[in-house]
Design a protein around this nucleic acid. Structure first.
Length: 275
DNA sequence: CGTTTTGTTCTGGC
DNA sequence: CGCCAGAACAAAAC
């Protein structure tokens, strides 16, 4: 499932292949995937050049000549390129198809959860785009004092708070489990019982794990693939998906519970609840 | 054939 | 109104 490292990996691949290309045709195949849209006629996207491609949390932002095109892969969104006109089979789950100079760009999601937003480029700060306005900072940009202030009043489990992209951007179900394992915090620990020092640890491990994963091109679990490339970080996961396995530190059996409705892996010996 | 899975938003209770 | 828990969303693997 694409979290920040997977999204960065995809984005890097897109940058390497698409910067400077011109959109010759834009064909929205799944209308309900278009959430925000500031232009009435999508033909306005024609002849727009791809100036830049960046990411914020799990969002990918295409900076065009006059517009921003923001996409989110959700769980199963994928991007494929073709040299030739894609076949009917290739387009079955398509969200949109773009012709970019010499190649065809196909954004697909067989579950149709992936989203697209289109905005006028009136503001250089992408954080002012509607869909990104409320997104929190990525771990590297977070100021520990304001993060602690924000979080210390919450009575939700730490895992739920870390998964909420309004609090911190980039972590998903897989990496949150790894972060909490390394920080030795029980996923159900209420956030308002976590000290600033402990929270600092959480941030430290978040940065470290995400950096390691980015280095390895993300994790490939189930169906994630970065336009054909597979990540390698899944081999480094310590707790997530460790069903019927044992903690590498203490040998205790990894436990699986539900937190915020999500499958959660942790070591009951090393990640104990306090208070 | 029911349960589980994912990221995010929505809904409703308090 | 804010906070939080849980449902909803789609589709497929188990």
């Amino acid at each position: 499932m694409p979290e920040l490292p997977e999204v960065r990996t995809v984005s890097k691949y897109l940058r390497e292949n698409l910067l400077g290309k011109k959109i010759l045709d834009f064909d929205l195949k799944t209308k309900k995937s278009l959430h925000d849209n500031e232009i009435e006629n999508l033909d306005l996207l024609k002849n727009q050049k791809i100036y830049d491609i960046k990411t914020l949390g799990k969002y990918i932002i295409f900076e065009l000549t006059n517009f921003y095109l923001v996409i989110h892969l959700r769980m199963e969104g994928k991007i494929n390129f073709y040299k030739e006109q894609p076949t009917h089979f290739n387009l079955i789950h398509s969200i949109f198809l773009m012709q970019l100079d010499d190649l065809f760009f196909n954004f697909t999601d067989h579950r149709k959860f992936a989203t697209v937003d289109i905005y006028f480029k009136k503001d250089k700060n992408i954080r002012n785009l509607n869909v990104l306005k409320k997104i929190g900072f990525e771990p590297w940009d977070i100021d520990i004092d304001s993060f602690f202030e924000k979080v210390k009043k919450k009575s939700s489990p730490i895992k739920v708070v870390l998964l909420d992209q309004h609090n911190i951007a980039g972590l998903g179900n897989i990496y949150v489990d790894e972060v909490l394992y390394r920080a030795k915090i029980h996923p159900l620990q209420k956030t308002n019982t976590i000290s600033k020092d402990k929270l600092r640890e959480v941030l430290k491990h978040s940065k470290k794990i995400l950096e390691e994963a980015i280095e390895l091109g993300g994790s490939t679990i189930k169906t994630y693939s970065a336009a054909g490339n597979e990540g390698l970080f899944q081999n480094k996961l310590i707790v997530h998906q460790y069903k019927n396995k044992y903690c590498k530190n203490c040998g205790e059996k990894i436990k699986i519970i539900k937190v915020g409705g999500r499958g959660t892996y942790f070591c009951p010996n090393e990640q104990k609840l306090w208070e």
